[in-house]
Design a protein around this nucleic acid. Sequence first.
DNA 1: GCAATTAAGTTGC
DNA 2: GGCAACTTAATTG
Length: 299
Amino acid sequence: MKGSGPRQATLPGLWKREQESNEKSKRKTSRTYDAVSYHKCDDNNGVLFWENKSLVNGPMLLLRGAVGGSTSTQRKNTKEALSSLPDWDDSVTFNIYGKECCMRRRICQYSSSGDISYSYSGLKNVVAPQFPMLVYEIKCQVEDLMLNYFLDNLEPSLSTGIKHFAVPPEFMALLRAIRESRNDPTSGERSEIFNYCLLNHYRNGEEYMSYHTDDESSLHPHCPIASVSLGSTRNFDIRQRKKGETSTKRCRLDRIPLGDGDLLLMFHPMQENYEHCIPVEKRVVGDRINLTFRRVNKR
DNA sequence: GCAATTAAGTTGC
DNA sequence: GGCAACTTAATTG
């Protein structure tokens, strides 16, 4: 019988107390909103604020409302155009423990070379076709924002001074190499940070993604995953990743509302230590498209 | 690996 | 306070 195993009785108010306790421990250990948690960044298009969202051993940076268009109307058009791409798979099914499951969202994926494969959500080594122009343009925008922030605006002293966050030197080296290559008129194709993108379309508040970690084994270890949101705000919930014995409770540690045009960067070892999900929220009206750009190791 | 199910707590009217 | 709808955690396969 499904889902009918013994469930530990929950005492009245326990959830609330856990929430409060989480809030307290968060204040103590995992999150600070000190002076360097918001980074001002002078971009060509104006001033941007990068927000430190890092947990202990879970580095994350967030930039609000910066991607996919500069107005909500432009971003709506971007989302609608993405929604019309021909490669969406609306009815992905996969097997877990011999049980056939239906993916509660629709997905598609693209890559630079058109032959990169990546494993996700129970599916193995699915080959991704080449980026359509619109996805490529969003990728370029994200890459430009990152190059501008990390190479031109982030002071070296601050890069190690933010609570629970330090820019990996290997990532900085990668960015410098890309900048150098782009400035070199003799270099051939445009060098890039990301070579792969997975798109998720949550058509309403009932579509979701369960707790999971992104497969890091095939990713460049020092390049963050860049998650772009377009459309309705959906919550991004985070909990501790299961390790060894699982007697410890794993309730939600953090919740980041991801809104229209937001860009979330997740650095190593975030995936090693935490799981994330997009929970069901029936009150949410409208759809959300999420693009996750990655640097996949080519085989 | 992650959707589906269940039980129980929370919220809103 | 009572009900319904929703949210959450735990569990299964």
